[in-house]
């Protein structure tokens, strides 16, 4: 059990600062997901916690203790790597045991621990196999077992599911959520996949270009994105963004907030366009509606609209988001929103 605190942390590679003066607190016992596009610095943050890519300046505290000078193996953290980083020359048992041996855990206890962890992750019959004789999913479990057996106070995971096929990934996602619930330890999970972030996180830390864009619960991030970047990164398809007026204010709405109709709608915002593409996904259909200015994505339960047919897209006022010229969210309680709502109405038949 431990919280993690970054204080004024900077990390540079070859004199290029990837992360500059970053402050962040990761709460004890929470499942925190660091998410963002590749190169945003999320893995760099994770490696700083682990101590395998220490910060250039600033402090990292685990459980209130400055670990800047503590070796990775002494920090009480365990990590699951993207490529699993299993020791290829050791058997599954030796892989899981290696950390325990280094920490001078007695033989009897080691045996007991390895076997019980093997049971937990479903590797019981495979303990004496070499990693080369395992499937991708099984290797993933070895990596997980190797981390779990050390009973760390912090679990670090660097895109652990990205090498699995889609089905296994969804299954492992559920297992990780259950694991977190069972262990109750701090999980820090890095991914570039917003679906993974949304489905597993207690707290999402959204990053871009080394800067934290928003840190909040998945629901908050979805319903009240702090800026345009958050609005467009979270959600699939991303939020539709349209220019609103000369002062650079932009309007946004989620594809699932919009209604489609062949007749004009009396929603607050109503846009006429033509269906350009149609993706039928089973329970829902995603349409791309093109106006003469731009295209909007609309997610609908109905699949009756056909390509090249004119349609109306309607969005209720409470589902509209506004972003200032700097990209930041304009709070719906702000007095200016009334004006923007008026302006949005002006977009009718645009």
């Amino acid at each position: 059990m431990a919280s993690i605190v970054f204080e004024q942390v900077t990390k540079s590679f070859d004199r290029t600062a990837i992360i500059r003066d970053l402050d962040l607190t990761i709460e004890d016992g929470k499942f925190t997901v660091l998410v963002g596009p590749s190169g945003c610095g999320k893995t760099t943050l994770l490696r700083m916690i682990a101590g395998i890519g220490p910060q250039t300046s600033g402090r990292v505290l685990i459980d209130g203790k400055d670990v800047s000078r503590v070796a990775p193996g002494q920090r009480g953290v365990a990590m699951v790597f993207q490529n699993y980083a299993i020791y290829p020359t050791m058997s599954v048992r030796e892989n899981i045991e290696f950390g325990l041996k280094n920490n001078k855990v007695p033989k009897e206890e080691r045996k007991r621990l390895v076997e019980s962890i093997g049971e937990t992750v479903g590797l019981s019959g495979l303990l004496d196999r070499k990693p080369s004789a395992l499937s991708g999913g099984q290797r993933q479990r070895v990596a997980l077992a190797r981390a779990m057996v050390k009973k760390p106070s912090v679990f670090l995971m660097d895109e652990p599911l990205s090498n699995l096929d889609a089905k296994l990934r969804v299954q492992m996602r559920v297992e990780l959520i259950e694991l977190h619930k069972k262990l109750g330890t701090t999980f820090v999970y890095v991914t570039h996949d917003q679906t993974e972030a949304m489905s597993m996180a207690d707290t999402i830390v959204l990053m871009n270009e080394g800067v934290i864009q928003q840190m909040s619960s998945p629901a908050e991030m979805y319903h009240r994105p702090a800026n345009r970047f958050a609005a467009e990164f979270i959600g699939l398809p991303p939020m539709n963004i349209a220019e609103l007026g000369p002062d650079g204010v932009q309007l946004g709405f989620r594809p699932e907030s919009a209604a489609l109709s062949e007749e004009p709608l009396d929603h607050h915002l109503c846009i006429r366009g033509v269906i350009a593409t149609r993706e039928m996904l089973g329970s829902e259909t995603i349409y791309q509606v093109r106006t003469d200015k731009q295209a909007y994505m609309v997610r609908s339960a109905e699949d009756r609209f056909e390509v090249d047919r004119p349609v109306y897209v309607g969005v209720p006022a409470e589902k509209l988001h506004f972003f200032g010229a700097d990209g930041r969210r304009i709070d719906e309680r702000s007095s200016d929103v009334r004006w923007y709502l008026e302006a949005a109405r002006g977009l009718v038949y645009a």
């Binding site: 682990a50 101590g51 395998i52 070796a71 990775p72 193996g73 002494q74 953290v77 365990a78 990590m79 790597f81 993207q82 490529n83 980083a85 299993i86 020791y87 290829p88 290696f98 950390g99 280094n102 920490n103 190797r146 050390k150």
Partner: peptide, 17 residues
């Protein structure tokens, strides 16, 4: 792969090991 060494560092392996 460098990650093997990183994993070993996290496993508290000494230089000799």
């Amino acid at each position: 792969p460098p990650s093997i060494y990183e994993a070993a560092a996290l496993d508290n392996a000494g230089r000799f090991k």
